[in-house]
Amino acid sequence: MSAIDWITQVLEVVAAVAAAPAFLGWLNQCRAWLQNRRAPSLWLPYRNLRKLFHKEAVIAEGASPLFRIAPYVVFGTMVLAAGIIPSMGTRLPLVGSADAIALVGLFAAARMFMTLAAMDVGTAFGTLGARREMMVGFLAEPALLMVIFVASQISSSTALPVITDHLASGRLGLSPGLAFSAVAFILVLLAENARIPVDNPATHLELTMIHEAMVLEYSARHLALMEWAAQLKLFNYVCIGFALFLPWGVATGHIGPMGLAVAIPALAIKLAVAGAGLALIETLSAKMRVMRIPEFLGTAFLFAVLGLLVHVLLGT
């Protein structure tokens, strides 16, 4: 491990933490344009975070220490995940510490702490949100794992950098199994990040909300951390998508200044396109009823399983 690897690693994490709010801002801008509205500023998420960090925090009387620890744990896991996902280079020091299964485990840990914190105060909304979040989670998590397994069957490893290396070199055409898992992945991404057909990030209607219901009792810095973690999660998911399906531009091998010079603009362009694409999907679809969500995610799960089957079958 040379110094430049470590520098890239730190750079990758810092860039993810810094750029995550901007990505959400960009997504919201695209959505507003598509819907013929005047777009909010790209910097609005940053201003929101700053505002929240300057407020006085109020904690409910019945809250236990778990409630106060959870935002830090959730934020911390998301930052760590940003370090594990090879979004700029594949030879980074941290990526060996966890493979894709551990990454999914990390997301699961964040979800678990978030739902437990939501149940901690004991409000009707909190428990409702926790239950719905787990309902989304228990289908989305296996679907994500199956998506990753298709890629790892192709590259015979569950380590993300190896997968990215393998997919970036050689095969141009999308392999048949991956076509299925790409569809499944987009569905999972929408569900996991509380985007439109599953959850509406813009409302506080009890009939629809999932993520918002869980963080209702948080305020000020705790809320800021939760929101920032959610933005990071979206960013991380998009980066996983790049690593699995669009690995071009990521520096394979030992990264040098030249590699970075390619990787960073490539990442920026991919993010811009992905943001616009997500905005398009959200604009075209309508919010589902809550009981339709399992059907939606079940479809994603089955697509992922099918991807694996097709891969096994066409491979023989």
Partner: peptide, 9 residues
């Protein structure tokens, strides 16, 4: 940090 009653919307 202040303690208060649960907000609950």
């Amino acid at each position: 940090v202040r303690r208060g009653p649960a907000w609950d919307c």
